[in-house]
């Protein structure tokens, strides 16, 4: 089930081969939904589910898809899965789905999906593709959660909507940093993550 090679496939994308900070894929949604932890977590779970199942489906079909129309086939498979996710979110988590707005739909054009389908699922067996999808989804999710953690903590003083910075701090003159909520700070937070990650992994430096 989990041979050494499969373990590598599953765990590689968590750090050394992370889709967001090393392969630079799927940045759009990684930045846009991270003002709060809750939508970031929901987004991470949705993307993981879609990548894993799209990988399995494309991997099962890989010998029957004509090469010239493979992009369209991939788009249709992914779009169908995203519609399912979108409808589920609308049915069970309406508030979060409102906050995510168009970004659920934009999972279709998330480069992680196309990247993994093209680079992995088209040439590997279903079980390996599934592990690769889960690995990349979780790798993406980790970055999302880290960014959202700092942005929500410094920007609103809350985590998952609960106040964590005590009232006393505010009485002593502490202020929430409103800039963290604004879009540009997401980019700078990711840049800091890249900085730390690359200082620890010298071989990734250019």
């Amino acid at each position: 089930m989990l041979s050494k090679k499969n373990k590598e496939i599953l765990l590689g994308p968590l750090s050394k081969n992370n889709p967001v900070i090393v392969q630079i894929l799927g940045i759009c949604s990684a930045l846009a939904v991270t003002a709060k932890l809750e939508p970031a977590l929901v987004m991470a779970v949705s993307v993981t589910a879609v990548v894993a199942f799209a990988n399995v489906i494309i991997s099962l079909l890989r010998n029957t898809i004509p090469n010239s129309i493979r992009i369209i086939v991939q788009l249709v498979v992914v779009a169908a899965l995203v519609i399912i996710v979108d409808q589920v979110l609308k049915a069970y988590m309406y508030q979060v789905s409102k906050q995510l707005s168009v970004f659920v739909g934009l999972i279709i054009t998330n480069c992680i999906l196309m990247g993994r389908l093209e680079a992995f699922a088209l040439s590997h067996k279903p079980w390996e593709s599934f592990l690769d999808g889960v690995g990349n989804g979780v790798g993406y999710g980790i970055i999302l959660v880290i960014v959202a953690f700092f942005r929500e903590l410094l920007g609103s003083g809350t985590l998952f909507g609960y106040q964590v910075i005590p009232q006393q701090m505010y009485d002593w003159g502490y202020q929430n940093n409103g800039l963290m909520i604004l879009p540009p700070m997401a980019l700078i937070t990711v840049a800091c993550i890249i900085w730390v990650h690359r200082s620890r992994n010298k071989d990734l430096q250019q």
Binding site: P184, A186, I194, Q205, Q206
Partner: peptide, 19 residues
């Protein structure tokens, strides 16, 4: 700085342009 070369600095520049 070496760890920021390439993609890291690009993110920071985009952030500053956004501001």
């Amino acid at each position: 700085p070496a760890p920021l070369r390439g993609i890291g600095i690009t993110f920071i520049i985009t952030g500053l342009m956004g501001i």
